[in-house]
Design a protein around this nucleic acid. Structure first.
Lengths: 155, 155
DNA sequence: AGCATTTAGTTGACGTGTAAACTATCTCCA
DNA sequence: TGGAGATAGTTTACACGTCAACTAAATGCT
């Protein structure tokens, strides 16, 4: 009986290897996500919010809202509230573009940058920790397999 | 430049292999999830709802609400609304236990069973499809690696 | 018996993801 | 120049996950 089978208290073995792999993937991702969520929450951020701040810092200059959305999994309408909350908390601000009054730039503020800086090392550490069970060979193999899966999913 | 790096339009290479693997995991899981979500939606179900129906069918008899919750990732309060919606849609019904009036059994109804039956083959097929890029060896390796990761996360 | 504690489940508040409909602005072209 | 269509972003409605606080019923201890 596999580890996963025990975890979900399943009585029947899996119908297929593919199914076992898919469920394993979901569960593992879930566990890892929980760890990061906790870390971000200590600094007043959710994973989505952290992600947006990372994008803004990485870009180095204000970005239109839809540009941000296109770089995340977040679908367009969700981004509005996300920016709202980041703005209310003082991490970013909105700035309407003067040439094209439809577009709104989002700029990361000092508080946002500071929070990211504090998080940098812990985030790196957590990445190492959650995958600490794997050797470098394992990691490379895992990455190879995951990219192989996505090759057919991203068409 | 890796596939993932291109996908997220990241300018810097990844800070570590572990980070690259974690993000790959998240993204792959996401893509797969979207496919299943679509399939379930065609039958009026969300992934969480489908999961609950599967648990009920697998058990073969009504289950107390908290027993269901403990078998899912769903945290207790979330289960209430989930059962509410399943009940309103006619997939399950609530039945109060007579010996212990605190517990409420959830029973899967004919409509729920029929819907699951219609989904069985498509679900199997989709599992095969999303992981169709991998050989049997790949699949076993992927499962091995994921379980290795979780070993240290489930403590 | 009687009161504190535990257990089962719900409610409410909030953050997020998704889809459809909407507003405001811009562009293009007849 | 003026109106059709495209584009940027918001609003609304709903499903879900999470936390904290709550109700109701059972248990257990004295």
């Amino acid at each position: 009986m596999s580890r996963l089978q025990r975890e979900v208290r399943k009585k029947q073995p899996f119908a297929s290897l593919a199914q076992e792999a898919t469920l394993n993937l979901a569960r593992t991702n879930d566990r890892i996500g929980i760890r990061f969520e906790r870390l971000f929450r200590e600094h007043g951020l959710t994973p989505s919010q952290y992600n947006i701040l990372r994008i803004l810092r990485g870009e180095g200059k204000p970005l239109p809202i839809l540009d941000i959305a296109s770089r995340t999994v977040t679908v367009v309408p969700g981004i509005t509230g996300l920016i709202d909350r980041l703005e209310k908390a003082g991490f970013v601000c909105r700035r309407r573009c003067t040439e094209d009054r439809r577009v709104i730039f989002v700029e990361i503020l000092a508080k946002g940058l500071q929070t990211l800086n504090h998080l940098d090392q812990p985030v790196l550490d957590l990445h190492e920790e959650v995958l600490g069970g794997l050797t470098v060979q394992d990691l490379k193999e895992l990455i190879r397999l995951l990219e192989k899966v996505r090759e057919r999913l991203e068409e």
